[in-house]
Nucleic acid binder design. Sequence first.
DNA 1: CGTTTTTGACCAGCGC
DNA 2: GCGCTGGTCAAAAACG
Length: 511
Amino acid sequence: MTQSYMDRRGGGAGVLTLDTSAPLFLASSSNYVGTGGGVLKRKQPTDSSDHHLGTGAIEFPISLNARSHAEMAEEALSSNPAVADEKKKNTNETSMVEQVDDEDDKEGRNELAAMQAELARMNEENQKLRLLLSQVSASYSALEMHLATLTRQGHQRNNESWKAREVIEVMGATVDAMNRDRGRVIFPRHFMELGPAAEEDKPSNSSTASPGRSSPPPDNLLYKNDENLDPSWNTNKALKFTPTKTAEQTPLATMRKARVSVRARSELTMIADGCHWRKYGQKIAKGNPCPRAYYRCTMATGCPVRKQVQRCADDRSILITTYEGNHNHPLPPAAMAMKSTTSAAASMLLSGSMTSTDGLMNSNFLASTVLPCSSSMATVSASAPFPTVTLDLTQDPNPLLSKRPPAAQFHFPFPSGGAPPQPQSLPHVHGQKLLNQSAFSEFQTSPQMAASQLPQQRAQPVVPPSLTEAVSAATAAITADPNFAAALADAIKSVIGGGHRPPVNSSDNIM
DNA sequence: CGTTTTTGACCAGCGC
DNA sequence: GCGCTGGTCAAAAACG
């Protein structure tokens, strides 16, 4: 099963979770957990039930449909073991004696009043979400009509049309998901099928060829027409976008191959992520005296997952591990957390890069939504040949437990889409090319495209900014959770033992 | 002896 | 076109 953000619990309202094995939960409303909206809660590590929160906590599904929060609240209340237990307990007690303490009665009334207030708030929020949904639906219809017009004009291969289709796919998926999956938040289809995640469920057909070179590109929604894409999984040899290429040949697909880089302090050769790796190369990269080691997953033949391990040039106690691709085989529990986390991070990155690639999302908006309050732990960069999200676990020994990490470092190459957010500092981007060298930025800034290929689009944006923001808000509500990056990092940290492992006698050939 | 690591060679992309 | 660089291959060596 491809990793997804969808709930996999056996019933009940959906709750966004990175993976059942990943200790991450997302509650839709802070009203019930006491922090900001869309709070990503940390799963209780001691919770053996694996699907229930600790005492008193109530999980709420993220709802973008018309379902009332009151309804959901009731469900949640009844499904919550703590509340259910309380209910049962109360029933038993009343049947036994009528010596109900007046104090308890008062408390109960107070709780009831508070609960009702919460429900009222929820209803209000629900109304807003309904409005949002209607806006998205209306815009989706408009886009569909626009696409039909373009198709009629025989411009299927026109870049604008392609892009319009793409946008519609995104929005359509969003709307579909909203309509179809009540009580769940579903990422737009392609968000979930992009890059690494898209490959997961597909059996590798590389058994007859050398591993790592034969896995087909993701056969996802957006790529189905990309017959000319590099058959190799290796998008490192990314095509550079040129206006002469057809839309089907655009390197969008290559740009969607996200990488997730993890920085952690470790004396080990590499962090223990639960997978088996075989080293297949080592190279001295420019600007870093420490060699970069290349590993390939050996848990299954033909597994396309690779990772690079390199020590930070500035601080050699920091190990930088960069993951690419997704496993085509079941993972041991120890590896699930890392896999889920990297996939989630990649999805988060890709969802951002997608919209921004089309120039549809204001960079400031993106910056303010995707990682509004995340710390420097999460650095998203599309400036590299492939978009990379860097999770920095080297800072505060336990920043994840803090309620509000400092401001995000978030930088997308938006040369024309408004001034990019000014990061406080960018100390965690390594080995990535300058903005003007990236395929991403080229796609963004290509003057030919801007001038000749997208004249209509420039004059008539496919999606009004407000709509874009509305659509983005739906997904950003999930990915932009203030604690999202922190939670991701938390999951990773749980795997690598907090990134502060004591030195182990190992032949550290990385150094 | 099978597996893993090492390491020089090779290839492709990119900038000049 | 050339050189640089990152990434990969594959034969040899090392290891258990």
